[in-house]
């Protein structure tokens, strides 16, 4: 299969890679760049565990080809903190109960950060609406919604 040369910025670092046509952004991040914070839940666009920022907007990285990211800017959960200082959403998710098994958390953090960037003061309904594409099997969502509300107050 033909390889494609791509240049991509991931968490501020420029990466030059050769990727096959069928490599997803998700697999590239996890397997080529060892950024395993981004999770593979369903590989079908349904669970949101693989959510990353692409050019400033959240996308399901299992539904994007690596080759489509040539020239793109990607931010994963590893890129949220400023060195040791957690981003406000991360800080807020330490709120008891928002993280349980943690598998869904990276995706929720990215979706929540994206929401707060486009709407710094969302209502509960707007938070729930923005997180519809992120599934959590542990928390029942209440604690996650509270964490986003807390993050909104912090930032």
């Amino acid at each position: 299969m033909t390889d494609h040369k791509i240049t991509i910025t991931v968490n501020g670092e420029i990466e030059r890679l050769r990727v096959g046509s069928n490599l997803t952004l998700l697999k590239m991040l996890r397997e080529e760049l060892a950024l395993t914070g981004t999770k593979n839940g369903c590989s079908a666009g349904e669970c949101g565990a693989c959510t990353v920022m692409m050019n400033g907007e959240p996308v399901n990285s299992c539904m994007v080809l690596a080759v489509e990211c040539d020239g793109a800017e990607i931010v994963t959960v590893e890129g949220l903190a400023d060195k040791d200082a957690l981003a406000p959403v991360q800080e807020a998710f330490t709120h008891p109960g928002a993280v349980q098994c943690g598998f869904c958390t990276p995706g929720f953090l990215i979706s929540s950060k994206a929401l707060l960037e486009r709407n710094p003061d969302p209502s509960e309904e707007e938070i729930r609406e923005a997180l519809v594409g992120n599934l959590c099997r542990c928390t029942g969502y209440t604690k996650i919604v509270e964490a986003v509300q807390e993050a909104a107050k912090m930032s």
Binding site: T2, S21, N22, K27, C42, S43, E68
Partner: peptide, 14 residues
């Protein structure tokens, strides 16, 4: 089963 891998195909960008 979940299907993590896409089958082989060639990506064309005209």
């Amino acid at each position: 089963e979940a299907h993590p891998n896409l089958p082989e195909f060639q990506y064309i960008k005209p």
